[in-house]
Design a protein around this nucleic acid. Structure first.
Lengths: 206, 206, 206, 206
DNA sequence: TATGAATGAGTATTCATTCAT
DNA sequence: CATGAATGAATACTCATTCAT
């Protein structure tokens, strides 16, 4: 019971933190604000989190886990490499659209900033890349793609998607452009960028 | 002479600000820090910049202008759409690599955050997109690309590149991946993503 | 015990604030000064008062309450309107003389300045006027005074007294004038100003 | 010519200062503000005024002079003591109503605050009291009033008027009270307070 | 006469964190 | 588990004033 309550408060704190972190930005974020929002004393936050960075780190980890879970689901439900890749792209985009706060938190702090916390935790984030790398490797094995460095390609894929969602969520998109259309076009471009490398290189051979 | 001195200090302040803004992030950035770093009283900053936002805005504007100039140079020196597009990508990437601080500043603040400064200035940033849009339109005219929405495609292109350089500069890249290789691969993917859309759609026709 | 300590510090802060507010004026008054004077960190003030205005407002309210209490006591202990009025004048003057700081604080900020705090609280100040108005009304009923607008007359009475004490406390009085004598004369004038209006108008009738 | 220009700028500065001083209050008042408002550099103010206090002092002196002039005019145009006193009251009130800013400036700083400037200048302010004292003395001589201490009575008169106008200008008047009515009543009370003292004391004699 | 540059001091306020309870 | 008290450090910004030009 008490366990439950504690967990509750911890979760409430994380929830408030999430909201503040993205709504008010890194600048407007403070433990005091989090405590105030949660209706608890500022000191109480320290019962659940060592310090500010620890709280933020927890937030980042949670978001990364959730995103990874989505990618894992795709990985488990599809087998064709091309379909999987498309599935990854869609899962990624949907997560960003459905949980913009959480998504943005993932990219909030770079490893550099997080001096106070172990880099080891950042490794965990790489699980998502493994699904991607694995899929690309499989595609190469099946002669669908021609990627000499699958891991590099996986990072490429991820980076391109990130760029797209980053532009969308930071509201930097030209008002004359339809968001939905933009995302679809982008995914289409990115996927075809992979497929076609093979085609391109075959072209001259013909 | 005195002119020179004044300009000097202003520039020095901007320089310090640039460094702090990216190294310490939006959080650790403060006018006092800038002043301290420049070896000048905190008050002096206000002689050259109305307030914090004004200083930051100047920084952003400078960076955007410089990047745009580079793109313009490419636009002026190349005529073939595909080559131009490649040139844009390379210019973009090179700017980001040569001036990582300036590059990151461009994406530091979203229009949302900059409440104190005119949105009109953000429009200026769009000049780069015009070069891109123009080039893609030309490619479509020459039947090289098949893009129904050139402007959307331009944003797509830009967003992908941004994602790539963002990953590079925030040091999020897996240590086992060679940065140079990663960037080249990424550019290659992005460019081919454009070219091949035509090829793809022709494929079934064969 | 701890209760006591807290209340103690709060009171000490209010005390220092009172002194500074009147001695240095609205200008020289600052929370930091208050803290310094109280021998406490500047931040500590914010534990007891939301902000500067809140502290000042508390000060004003306290003074008004105390003055009103004195008037109420007079109201309760005397019944004859003329004697009551004289009692009011004396109570008012004595309060100003005994608690010059508190008295001056009452008139420090006009409703205009206090933008951050509810006007509703200013209404509280009017309780004193009610005693006056009531007394004048009673005098009119008893045919002692001939005041067509008792409320207006109450404000008149109050304003005249305020002018007198204001001159005394701001040390604007000519050095050749005895303060005690000045106050007595003034009260006498003010009271007779009320009584005599009736007399004056009766005169011609004779 | 240049003389003229200089005088112009000095006057403009005083004008801006007057406006700021009362509109924004003592707190919002600053030399920089004055300079800004006048469209001149902050440093320029120091050409015409030694420092902030000197500027403010000049303002106070000017206002006092103007008020005294009005009283002097009344003194010169009326001879009957009672009429003169009434004339003084009306002149005083009218000046406060027509030039609220200037009027309030007179009472802005008490001698205590003006540490940086000679008390001697405050003596000048007393000229107004002399007209009053003189008039009361004359009334006593003509057996109209019975004031043992004419100078004290003069200060009494002045203080009451000040209280009245102070309440009006600081907007402390109850909204249900008509300002015009209030002022008239107040003047009437104050004047009768003088007249009637004689009457009162005669009364018992009858 | 007028100004731009520069500064030290000061202001309100917020924050992360510690400590005793 | 939870909190109130307390603080040192920091921040943006404003100001009065001086100085060299």
């Amino acid at each position: 019971m008490s366990r439950n309550n504690n967990q509750d408060l911890r979760d409430k704190l994380l929830q408030s933190a999430r909201e503040l972190l993205v709504s008010k930005g890194y600048r407007g974020f403070s433990l005091r604000q989090v405590a105030r929002e949660t209706g608890v004393s500022a000191t109480s936050v320290y019962i659940y989190f060592e310090n500010k960075d620890h709280l933020i780190h927890t937030l980042i980890e949670q978001s990364i886990s959730e995103l990874n879970e989505r990618l894992e689901k795709v990985y488990g439900s599809l087998t064709d490499p091309e379909e999987r890749l498309k599935g990854f792209a869609e899962a990624y985009v949907n997560y960003a659209l459905e949980h913009p706060r959480e998504y943005q938190i993932i990219y909030l702090a770079s490893p550099e900033d997080m001096t106070r916390y172990p880099k080891e935790k950042f490794r965990k984030a790489r699980r998502g890349y493994e699904f991607l790398t694995d899929t690309i490797k499989e595609a190469v094995r099946q002669d669908i793609f021609d990627e000499p460095y699958p891991r590099t390609a996986a990072y490429t894929f991820w980076a391109q998607l990130h760029g797209v969602m980053s532009v969308v969520l930071s509201k930097r998109l030209d008002t004359r452009i339809d968001q939905q259309e933009f995302i679809e076009q982008a995914i289409s471009h990115i996927l075809h960028g992979f497929q076609m490398r093979t085609a391109l290189q075959q072209k001259p051979n013909i």
